[in-house]
Amino acid sequence: MERKKKIQWQPVLLLAPAILIVVLIIGYPVARAIVLSLYKYDMTNLQNVKFIGLQNYTDIFTKDDAFWPALKNTVLWVGVTVTAQLLLSLLLANILNKSFRGRGIVRSVVLIPWVTPCVLISLMWAWIFNGNYGVMNEILKSLHLIKENVAWIAQPNTALWVQIMAMIWQGIPFFTIMILAAMQSVPRELYESASVDGASSMKQYFYITIPGIASTIVSTVMIRLIWVFNNVDIVYTMTGGGPGYSSLTLSVYTYLQAQKSMKFGYGSAVAIIGAILMSIVIFIYLRITREQGGMIDK
């Protein structure tokens, strides 16, 4: 994608408002978080604030029982959620792109999970999967798939998966809308000439649609990765990261350390480690997809 040389003040002017708003409001708090991660800074003990260099970081890697399980859960939480959301939404967007009666209503209805506040989502799913009177147990029992009630949220091997399901459910509409919008910009002539050449609709999908919307997929996945990684509400409201560490993610761990235990230094260090790992993932991801996405230059 070669662009003609332009006079360079135009992009500066166009970008200025966005950069200004973001830096003015969020710059200082972010910088402060980075600095705090080098301190022992407990809100409960501000007389004892001291610079300890990288000790928070070394403690996390060597002494902290919760960190490694949290890291493992985060990989599952982000990886499974975003992949499933992408695949399911590609399917759904394809359906909604066809013309059928009641399409407008269906398109609006599938939006519901996305407009539902997270607090409600976690209450709703916790309610459905409740081990004592949840509707899921009743359904599975009547289908004879389980014999007795299962405590989905209180068991280490199922708790995280219930939360992943809730998160997938929440995120599909966003993906779908973005993909649906992108599909509109794929020129129709391409399909018409492909049809004339006798390409099957499956072929058309993989050779015309997917490349046509690649840039949107790349940026949407990107945003979703960060969003899911940062989400605290769903896990915290449902299990608080438990039982034990079995559904603890790095963001929830940060939240617990900073907001609940008031250890801002340690919490910041956990957050920074998460941010660094996440930016490595993003960097690699954008490298791999730069042909399709065109989001970054070579």
Binding site: G242, Y245, S261, M262
Partner: peptide
């Protein structure tokens, strides 16, 4: 230490012991 102990340490440790 009480805030950290009651908010984070106790529930995590209790749950691990229960499991």
């Amino acid at each position: 230490t009480w805030g950290d102990w009651s908010e984070t340490v106790w529930p995590q440790t209790m749950q691990r012991a229960m499991m």
